[in-house]
Design a protein around this nucleic acid. Sequence first.
DNA 1: CTCCGTTTTGCAAATCATTTGCATTTATAT
DNA 2: ATATAAATGCAAATGATTTGCAAAACGGAG
Lengths: 142, 142
Amino acid sequence: MDVYIIEKQLRNKGYKLTEQRSILIDILNKSETPCTAQEVYEAARQKCNINFSTVYRNLELLSKLKIITSLNIKQGVTHFEIMGAGHHHHAICKGCGEVQVIEICPCHSLDSRMLEQLGFTPTELKFEIYGYCSKCNIEQNR
Amino acid sequence: MDVYIIEKQLRNKGYKLTEQRSILIDILNKSETPCTAQEVYEAARQKCNINFSTVYRNLELLSKLKIITSLNIKQGVTHFEIMGAGHHHHAICKGCGEVQVIEICPCHSLDSRMLEQLGFTPTELKFEIYGYCSKCNIEQNR
DNA sequence: CTCCGTTTTGCAAATCATTTGCATTTATAT
DNA sequence: ATATAAATGCAAATGATTTGCAAAACGGAG
């Protein structure tokens, strides 16, 4: 994903391109898996002076602009992920919490007429598989 | 769902059947949609003297025993739902937050070989559709 | 039916993620 | 270079959830 496009998009809408902001975007963009605010913050502070509230405010802004999405994968913490990295879903390990990106997608086979009958207009689908990753598979005895 | 079975299950495992506990089970059992701890607490205090920590401790216990499941449908709050009410998924309205139970299920068409290749052993699938319910559909302009 | 040991509860305080108010700093158009 | 709106840092607030501890309630044994 090209960060330049995102940055231009921000400027066009009148948002400023601060050092913190572009570092945050870069971190989210490079990450292979969804990040928590905590993780983004840890990574960002290595590169610049930054405050937690700045992280949160930017995550909110980027979500609003649909540059990133938030995921409620795990109770208590929100994960964030760059959009436009292609449509995909997640496999979440109940042992170590690792989040894998998976290409399996149920959306094709979705019968949208059933939703229409409910008067429901879908905008997003989330499909998550919980289980044990290869590492945790062995110690599944809990 | 028969509450008696759940209660027997608790006793068999050495847990006591307190007034609070059986009221909580009853509330969760009767609810058509997933509840938050807050909602369960509100409903329970109409019927008995109860404290928030009791609610949380019991929600945790019931989850551990797989009598209920927790859902991370909405950021910031956990929802709880009786299990064995049949396999189903949810449609969550982004307008009012209403959670509808839907019978659409992608699980049949899931190609589990793809997961095996990843060394991932699935235990649960979650499939959630976000969008706008019939009431909120009109004011979707936000 | 009462007593005892164990489990639960209530209460208050702690924790953790996230949000907010406000004064100060910074990015950008001119 | 300068003005100004937007963004940041800091500290304090909020809201959900958790925890320690003493008191109360459950369920089995006598």
